[in-house]
Amino acid sequence: MNIFIYDNTFEGLLTAVFDSYSLKIIPDILVSQKEYQDYLWANKFEINTDICKAERVWEGLEKKLSSKNINLPFRIFLSEENDNTRLLFDFIRLVFDSHHNIETDYGNPVILTARQAERKVLQEACRMLQFVRFQKTGDDIYFSGITPAFDVLPLIVRHFEDRFADQKWVLYDMKRDYGFYYDLKGITEITLREKQFDSSNGELHSDTVAENEIFYQRLWKNYFDHICISERINPKLQKNHMPRRYWKFLPEKRL
């Protein structure tokens, strides 16, 4: 039995694909160092992440995949699920092993599952565009602390950069403890040492928040309540669109 152990980075995974071709081995198990347990009879291969190898695999993918699907591997990777790592590995090998373009061969379970996994990640990214809420701080930075189900921040910062180009903002993933700061010029990745917010719901501490912030939150909540038609109340439909797990981040639901 062959085990590939990689460092849980995207480049590491691409390196694993490269090595699997050069070693002519398809691993039975592919795990990250974090999750590795000792197997008695296994052949262990430690994959040393190698940017050059990763680049070559990436370039190969660029040739084999259409522009519509070139981001699919990275998006699946962001789902951080172990099954998906394997799926991704199989997907990439399948793409290389086929002579023609197979990305829409949905009768093949690997292709279909890859597409479905990608869509789940994209849906979470989409939900962030919907449900991120900024609170203004005393020094005019718009802050949002969130905990997306997948590591989707890299997929959404561009949207916020385009849209909120004339205000400083921070988007912070409280679960993975990193975020992005936009300072009117560009975006930097940050990790906040002092947390001036409640890390369960992202609410800013009262000494950090801008003076009129709560006023606007109340106005918004007031709007939210009065735009609803009481004869049509339908909590199930509401929850379908806006699952409960996001509610704690929303002033209209929290206040």
Partner: peptide, 29 residues
């Protein structure tokens, strides 16, 4: 588009930012 760093932009597909208790999308004020 958001040219010259004004406020905001519009995306073709539209975005729902919340859903009222009657389950309808809130996208606009």
């Amino acid at each position: 588009g958001n040219k010259g760093k004004g406020i905001g932009n519009s995306v073709a597909a539209g975005i729902c930012h919340s859903f009222t208790d009657d389950g309808r999308c809130i996208s606009l004020l």
